[in-house]
Simulated assay, not measured.
Amino acid sequence: MARRKKIYEGKAKILYEGPEPGTLVQYFKDDATAFNAEKKAVIEGKGVLNNRLSEFFMTGLQSIGVPTHFIKRLNMREQLVRQVEIIPLEVIVRNFAAGSMAKRLGMEEGAPLPRPIIEFSYKDDKLGDPLVPEEYIIAFGWASQQDLDDIVALALRVNDFMSGVMHGVGIKLVDFKIEIGRIWDNDFHRLVVADEISPDSCRLWDIESGQKLDKDVFRKDLGSLTDAYTEVARRLGVLPSNVTHRPRPTLIN
């Protein structure tokens, strides 16, 4: 489709003005970043895979009644989404100890948690997306107590769905992060899952081997990031089972 006015460019996506009021076109780039963009690379085909995988997860969530900003996929790299007011928080759901949590608490990587734990970080790359308690969120007006209750409920529903889907294809959902947006109707608003859900925003380990199938492959130089994402897509049926890795992945339209 024809390019429209650029609204915003982030590390992995670009948002363009949409064809109708209240819509945006979300374009997935091949850029990979880690450690708050201190490590950067262009991974050919990554944007195509994340577009398809995010479509898969967003439509799956909508099918069970979880509202999202997703409307439809437009092509191999773009999707049409609703314009939302993003709450400036990353909502992190953890099922197993990993990453920063394991380091902070001195826990063994992969140790199961007694229940899913939800953390919030303030979205600010310059500050390193610091963890913030609910008291800060309410005091600074980023979200109300009712919003927080609704966000937690949404995050747990996403976790239930994602954990089940991943377990069904032999993948352990270690943790993930989502963003939440507000859609306004006069003085009232509803909360929806926004941004993306992809291996960029999840930790995914093969249940049998423990092989990492997420952005940790790039963070820790564990191999080909495209191969890892392609394997996730293949298992979920986003790719046909007989596809082997190519520099430019061929996906089903």
Rank of each mutant, 00 (worst) to 15 (best):
I207N: 04
R115V: 12
D185Q: 15
S209F: 01
I171N: 00
W184C: 13
Y122V: 13
V174E: 01
K172I: 07
W205T: 02
I197G: 01
G210N: 11
V192P: 01
C202Y: 01
C202W: 00
Y122K: 15
G168C: 03
N159T: 10
H189F: 12
K212T: 07
L191W: 08
A155S: 14
D129Q: 07
G99Y: 07
W142D: 02
I118S: 05
H189N: 12
L131C: 03
V193N: 03
M162N: 00
Y136F: 12
W184L: 14
L131Y: 11
D160N: 13
G110Q: 08
G141L: 12
E196Q: 03
D185A: 15
I171Q: 00
G168V: 08
D195R: 01
M162G: 03
I178V: 15
S198N: 00
N186T: 12
P112F: 05
C202R: 00
L127A: 15
F120E: 04
S209Q: 03
R203C: 02
L173I: 08
E135Y: 13
I183V: 15
K177W: 05
E108M: 15
D206Q: 07
L105P: 03
M107R: 07
A111V: 10
V169R: 03
L204K: 04
Y122R: 15
S144P: 06
R182N: 03
V192I: 10
P116D: 08
D150N: 14
V174H: 02
A143T: 13
E179M: 08
P130Y: 08
A139S: 14
D175V: 04
I117G: 00
I151R: 01
D149P: 00
D206R: 02
